[in-house]
Design a protein around this nucleic acid. Structure first.
Lengths: 214, 214
DNA sequence: GTCTATAAGGGGATAGAC
DNA sequence: GTCTATCCCCTTATAGAC
């Protein structure tokens, strides 16, 4: 693409962020060159440095922005968490699925490129992730304390649920047989069952022929 | 490391595979240079080409080997699947967790570096992954047909469960307060509950047709 | 089987003109 | 704000000596 007459800085900056997000998700941070980004944006490589300090700064900004947006959206969605942990959990699951569908690139980058962040940048992103996950953990802890949820180990259950929910971005594309609402329903159902105190437990089922403990 | 007297080809080949697995997992395929691998193996960069055709061949071999090993282990573990889907599901969950703990590097590479595989290599790995996931899907379908499992959408439930289980490799390291056995127990419990027909459903809240407690 | 040396090309980032 | 040109370094892979 050649330089377009009338292009301005703010527009180019946003185009740059979107191009980098797509390219990093598709090929990986290390595999994407400044020349590739410049070609996608439609400027010469050197011009990119009007909008970013370095390639690392660009990665950090994309990841921090994603996490801050996620936290802000959850805070706006549930400024006053429902006192019923079951209701709060259902709200969290629907929010998480809904927020992540359509942000597949940012989600993928936020998991895969952690290793390419320099230590200070990693610490910042890691702290934001911890803040978000603690919202779910507190719901599970409250539910367990009240006896309305079954979560003997809340930290582990938190990670298990987050992994299950976020995994939807690995395959769901919205163009298949299921709508985003269908997905929300299925995952909400599975999550609520997974921590339901009325479900059949898995461990106390008599003999376990599957145990492979040596 | 300098060349060691008495080193031989087979030993170097295995050292190369292990070094590449660790480095690819830690820094990413694109960020790892042949020089880094050679330094880790203890040879000069050019000598690596006695053991591999190219860097891409090395990545494909690592990923295909991981998937083939996984499939072979499951086939050996359950050559004759239990006719009771609940028992079969419990066996699958325990197998999956147990097999993946200790293989964090291979698991991470198998998910993160799919995008760096050339089309033919990607197709091969993708097919192997599909074969493995179908083992779980069939269990869920059988269980739903018999009414002993709740899985209204078996393909989606399969992906949700695999994501939840594999997610354990993102954080579990064995040196914390929980043992691998503890993790197996927790995830087996959550998975069985998630597809239990006796759990409280998530969508029709307020009614609880299956509660065992008044 | 491993070494040294090198080919051929791409990498991030900067300088200075306009 | 964007361009052209460039610095200096690293990349994968190969050639040929030993």
């Amino acid at each position: 693409m050649a330089r377009r007459t009338g292009s301005n800085g703010a527009q180019t900056a946003e185009t740059l962020r979107r191009a980098a997000l797509t390219l990093f998700a598709r090929h990986g941070y290390a595999a994407v060159s400044m020349r590739m980004i410049a070609a996608e944006v439609g400027v010469q490589p050197g011009a990119l440095y009007n909008y970013m300090g370095s390639k690392q700064d660009l990665l950090r900004d994309l990841m921090v922005s994603h996490m801050e947006e996620l936290l802000a959206a959850w805070t706006a969605r549930a400024p006053d968490p429902d006192p019923d942990p079951v209701v709060a959990l259902r709200a969290f699951v629907r929010f998480h699925i809904r927020h992540h569908i359509g942000r597949e690139d940012a989600v993928f980058i936020s998991y895969m490129e952690l290793r390419n962040l320099e230590p200070d940048n990693f610490a910042a992103v890691h702290a934001l992730r911890g803040a978000y996950e603690s919202a779910l953990r507190v719901i599970l802890e409250d539910g367990a304390a009240q006896g309305v949820l079954h979560a003997p180990d809340a930290p582990v259950a938190t990670r298990a649920i987050i992994s299950m929910l976020t995994g939807v971005t690995n395959w769901f594309r919205g163009s298949g047989r299921l709508s985003a609402d269908d997905i929300e329903d299925i995952y909400t159902d599975m999550t609520l069952r997974a921590v339901s105190p009325t479900a059949k437990g898995a461990i106390h089922q008599g003999e376990d022929p599957c145990s492979t403990h040596p």
